[in-house]
Nucleic acid binder design. Sequence first.
DNA 1: CCCTAGGGCTAGGGTTTT
DNA 2: TAAAACCCTAGCCCTAGG
Lengths: 217, 217
Amino acid sequence: MFSGSGGFNICKTYPCSQESSSLLLLMGAPKQKWTSEEEAALKAGVVKHGVGKWRTILKDPEFSGVLYLRSNVDLKDKWRNLSVMANGWSSREKSRLAIRRVHQAPKHDENPFAVPPFTPSDEDIVDVKPIQVSREVVPFSGPKRSIVRLDNLIMEAITTLKETGGSNKTTIAAFIEDQYWAPPDFKRLLSAKLKYLTACGKLIKVSHIHLLWTIFG
Amino acid sequence: MFSGSGGFNICKTYPCSQESSSLLLLMGAPKQKWTSEEEAALKAGVVKHGVGKWRTILKDPEFSGVLYLRSNVDLKDKWRNLSVMANGWSSREKSRLAIRRVHQAPKHDENPFAVPPFTPSDEDIVDVKPIQVSREVVPFSGPKRSIVRLDNLIMEAITTLKETGGSNKTTIAAFIEDQYWAPPDFKRLLSAKLKYLTACGKLIKVSHIHLLWTIFG
DNA sequence: CCCTAGGGCTAGGGTTTT
DNA sequence: TAAAACCCTAGCCCTAGG
């Protein structure tokens, strides 16, 4: 190659974590496989801060201790992988899911996607406890519980499903139940929530069936 | 199919707070991709009013018809993207380029960046003419030439080539000449520049032959 | 308050590695 | 071939400074 005769080269100093990982790769470091601790922290982070809040999760002292080797992009990519594994539902399989989903017990077996169990608390807030994957490593300070708004779960469901024409209650419920553990009266809760969100303008009902979500409507 | 049964969907209306904008993206609102008309208008606007006059361009009746969906910040961001495209190559193409580069006539790649007039300043400026690609789209009034800092070209060459051990003068020259039209005395200019950059610490010489570039050295 | 410059972030498509 | 890990970049956000 050209390099034999000597020449100029870039001195790599990287301000950005994403690039440092690429540097690692260039230097022959192996791919960093995700540990179950990291995975658990990521899931807990998503429960706490929401999907897409990668930098926020990373900066949260609750998770930074575990995830300090990862970048926000790493988090995003890992979440994508987990999501794919958890719900292989390509748009065609969604309907199947919606149908058979209703009578399924929450399963903790093969599903690597965290099933943060959640319990209702008041009309608008849902108390969620991240699942403990490997209890001894995750340095949570006691029996801390993160709080998640049912709003967000609904939004996540609709966003993830991306169904043209919108998602109906059954599908949304199925999605949430599949991703999270839901209490027995969840269906009723969801109905009430959807009704409320529609009433206050955050969801819009289309032709009596379809609804459009508007966050601050 | 599935959507026939109705459902919920995300509504992409814009509230105003910062939260809302981030939610917006989360909610699946598509990014507004730039059309070629908008791009052309932006370029023409820059030719007419100059780089950095985003609000002025936006208000110009000549362009407002096309750009009315964009903000001044959008213009700025798009211009930055275009500049990146013009100056650097996607790293994926870099290797390809580095390999087949030597025995190839200057070829028109996809470069859509259209020759904005920069402001030259002094000794470390070189007159370089990027290769013209899509002439019909760019509404430029004539054969303008862009002025580019030789520093940047050198850095770009080294960065792009990514040769382990560094790049030598010949390779750098070949790279630049391949991508730009260079004046007859370019070799001499390059030598002087490399010497200067080494002297002032921006390039580091390794064992009399290899040099390491330190951006902010 | 508006503007610009520039750093940063996310989503999503691609690529590389296993 | 597929999955996991990682890369690249368009478009957009945030902040500082004028």
